[in-house]
Design a protein around this nucleic acid. Structure first.
Lengths: 161, 161
DNA sequence: AAAAAGTAATTCACAAGTAAATTATATTAG
DNA sequence: CTAATATAATTTACTTGTGAATTACTTTTT
């Protein structure tokens, strides 16, 4: 395999034969694939009404029919609270979401997609699935499932709700 | 599996049974694991002399004994040129790297680790390997190799030098 | 050899992200 | 019940990242 990580590994093995580099082969590639996929997504969203992080907020809301609170969005998108507030302010003034204070606890806010927000989320999500399918094309359906399973086992302990 | 992505998938399947969500199981987890691993790395580097992106520059330089040019660092770290310049300026004034104009083409610059930079890179890299090993612990050595192999095949077409 | 085109690094102007402080509300302890 | 503590969202002050313009060359064309 001649990706950047295999060159990386080769250099390190020669320089530091004392180190156990076995994790780099897997984790280095996870990090690199994610960075490249994020670039591909951003290119695909060029000219769209929202950026990639904003799209991630829309996608999280799309699959929660009753909406979510900012705190949950922060966790789902792995961002800071401050950045969630900024994205919500931007999405609200673009007419893609609404924010309504909760009755039972007025510190909290319920965030919901507007109709326009839902339509946009659906359009962009379909395009995102296409981009992901293109990138994953080198693997068979079985292999993709195998990959998903291995990753799920790594994630389970560190990605608890 | 009860990670965030499996809940994500479950919701989407109910909402949009028309979509082919098979890619999300794998790619969604790649993106999520990378984001969580980056957080873990940043926590681990708290109090260190460099940030995670700066560490990535040091690591790329560490495995290139003759140094690299900014352009190559930009590609290796998947960043913008402007951001590479900023990081190099910062690392240079911290005494961790040197920048020397090349003889054969004076537009270019050779970036090299100082002794202190190399020592720091080695220390931080060893700690990074430990963190990665901890995260990957749910998988056997064989499974980690299998994961690496699947990812390498996805990366090969999109990660050419 | 001069002009035009191309390229590497940097600078500039601005956008996006975050930790820490603040505001508003709810919960717990005395 | 009041004071102290805790929590959610936001604001503030600042850091980091980036596209586009600039600078300093090098290469190609005529």
């Amino acid at each position: 395999m001649s990706d950047a990580v295999s060159r990386f590994l080769h250099s390190w093995t020669r320089l530091r034969p004392d180190l156990d580099l076995s994790t780099v082969a897997a984790m280095g590639r996870v990090l690199r694939l994610a960075a490249l996929m994020n670039n591909i997504t951003e290119d695909g969203l060029a000219g769209a009404e929202v950026t990639r992080p904003e799209f991630e907020v829309l996608a999280a809301l799309r699959r929660s029919p009753d909406g979510l609170r900012p705190r949950q969005l922060t966790r789902e998108t792995i961002a800071s609270g401050a950045s969630t507030t900024k994205r919500l302010t931007r999405l609200e003034s673009a007419g893609l979401i609404t924010r309504t204070p909760l009755e039972r606890d007025r510190r909290e806010v319920q965030v919901r997609l507007t109709d326009r927000g839902r339509t946009l989320a659906d359009t962009l999500f379909a395009a995102q699935l296409d981009r992901e399918a293109t990138v994953l094309a080198p693997l068979s359906t079985d292999e993709q499932a195998q990959l998903a399973d291995l990753l799920a086992r790594v994630l389970a302990p560190i990605d608890r709700a």
